[in-house]
Design a protein around this nucleic acid. Sequence first.
DNA 1: TGTGAAAATTGTGTCCC
DNA 2: GGGACACAATTTTCACA
Lengths: 146, 146
Amino acid sequence: MEDTDREIVRLLAHDGRMSYTDLAKATGLSTSAVHQRVRRLEQRGVITGYAAQVSSDAIGLPLTAFISVTPLDPGAPDDAPQRLAGMTEIEACHSVAGEESYILKVRVGSPGDLEDLLARIRAAANVRTRTTVVLSTPYESRPPAV
Amino acid sequence: MEDTDREIVRLLAHDGRMSYTDLAKATGLSTSAVHQRVRRLEQRGVITGYAAQVSSDAIGLPLTAFISVTPLDPGAPDDAPQRLAGMTEIEACHSVAGEESYILKVRVGSPGDLEDLLARIRAAANVRTRTTVVLSTPYESRPPAV
DNA sequence: TGTGAAAATTGTGTCCC
DNA sequence: GGGACACAATTTTCACA
C-alpha cells in the first residue's frame, strides 16, 4: 500500500467521521482524489466499515472477562460459535490453538451477571469454561500500524 | 438511557458515518433533535469516538494471538503496559485476575514476526509469556446490546 | 490518478414551541 | 426536548488532464 493510502487509513482509524475536506488538507490532495482513494480502500477491503465507539462502562457493562471454552463431548459437531452467537454479552469469539477451543471476550454488568452468563454458555454449548476477569484495561482497540 | 438514545447508539455503532438526516429518518425525529442527542451522548461519554475498521488481513497482519504475561521479578514496580505501549503489534493490554498479570492481544504478519515480538516483549518488560494463537475468528467487535 | 467546478445533500446555529 | 428554517460546509459526480 502506498504512503498516501496508509496516511488516509491512519487518519480514519483515528477519526472515522473526518470529512473528505480535512482528509484532503491533511494529505495535500483534492477532495475528489481523497474520496476516490477512500472508496478504493473500502472496495479492496482495507477499510471494512465505520463504527461509533461505545463506552461499556457508560452503558452499564463495567465488567469484562475472557472465557476459555472446551467442548465436553469431543465427538459432537462443534458449533459453539453459532450456539453462543445470540448472547449479546459476547463481544468476540476466537477459535484458538492450545488446550482450549475458543476464547470469548464478554462484557457484563456485575459478577452476578457473569455467573448467569457462564451458566448459559455451559448449557447452550455443552462446554467447560475457564474465566479470567479483567481488572483494568491500560489500552484496547489500538489501530494497527498501517 | 432512553429508547431513542439507545437506538441512535445502536445505529452509529453499526455505521459510524451515518448522516444526521438518516438518523433522523430512522428515529422519527428532526435532524436538530438527533444532532443534539448525539452531542449529549458524546458529552456523557457514551459515544467515545468514531473509527474506521481496518482489516488486519488486508494490511498484512493475518496472524492474531493472545499473550499472557507474568512478571519475572514480583518485587520490581510493574510498569509492563507502559514498557510495551510502543509496540504497535499490541492491539490491547488488559490487567487480569488469575495466575498471570496481563493479557495482550497482538497482530503480526507471520509466525516469525510473532517469535520476534515475544522476544521483544520478554526483554522489554522482564516477563514470562504464554501464547495462544488464534486460528479463526467467528466474530469480533460486536457492538454491545445498548 | 489527479484537478477543478457544479449540483445535490448535509451540517449547524438560531429562533420558536 | 423538539421542530423549522436558513446559510455554510461537505459530499458526490463529471469533464478533462
